[in-house]
Nucleic acid binder design. Sequence first.
DNA 1: CTCAGTGCAAAGGATTTGCATGCCG
DNA 2: CGGCATGCAAATCCTTTGCACTGAG
Lengths: 147, 147
Amino acid sequence: MADERGDLHASVAEMLRGGSQRYTKNRRDVIQILEEAERPLTIPEILEGGDGLAQSSVYRNLAVLEQTGVVHRVQSTDEWARYELAEDLTGHHHHLICSSCGSVDDFTVPPEMEESLHQVFDQVSSRTGFNPEHHRLDLVGTCARCD
Amino acid sequence: MADERGDLHASVAEMLRGGSQRYTKNRRDVIQILEEAERPLTIPEILEGGDGLAQSSVYRNLAVLEQTGVVHRVQSTDEWARYELAEDLTGHHHHLICSSCGSVDDFTVPPEMEESLHQVFDQVSSRTGFNPEHHRLDLVGTCARCD
DNA sequence: CTCAGTGCAAAGGATTTGCATGCCG
DNA sequence: CGGCATGCAAATCCTTTGCACTGAG
């Protein structure tokens, strides 16, 4: 997986081809909007960012992109689902979730911390029979705007 | 155990009184069901566990209980909200979330890990102006039943 | 008596789907 | 050409709300 920004669309196209999916203009637009936002977006936000995108198409395309592993669905504290580029494309990170307005921003933790976490997860999974795919480490509170 | 249960209901009653709320039979039933489950439950699951509880009353009571800090809403990977007793009543813990069936179970991590996490969170919050209330550390994967 | 709590049914609202049309491969 | 993608509108489904009634204080 290339991690060069300029090759984002190429990487996405390749991932979609692997899933026998096309990289259409609508899908490219959605990816473009998500890349520029640099934070998880709601469907209304994606619709605003696009030029005449149909709501149903955005929902359908996000479903395809999520199944293909290109985007990832994020749960906040409010009722709206948010979407971001998958970590394969952006790198591993975590979320600052505002319990007041629901907005989501990214942050990262030191590599040593991630390693320690993985050790704990291995213990938990061998103890419980749970088969881990990935982890979510979110900080919930109030963002600078809502304070 | 009877003693622990008695204490639980007493604690809940006190928390509700503090919020000028009554501890009615319906609310007691919901708390009872959540306590016995020992894992976050969906509304349908709570309705099954109860004896003729009305759906709207469960929704309304969970809203009251959440505002009073007695229960906590948990987001899984599926569309249903899940509820559990608040950590004030059960102790701090984390969740194993099944990406296949959406079920949620509890687990804990060593205290040293929690401390390290808090140090990282303090750094993040002083850097970003984000004001943390609590954190979510979830392990997402497939549960033993779905493997 | 009074007002919060309850149950039923109807309304909300984010998300999904049916169907006719357009476009890429 | 053929089938997937699209857009519009209608349908879905979890959740919320209106309203009349019951019950605790």
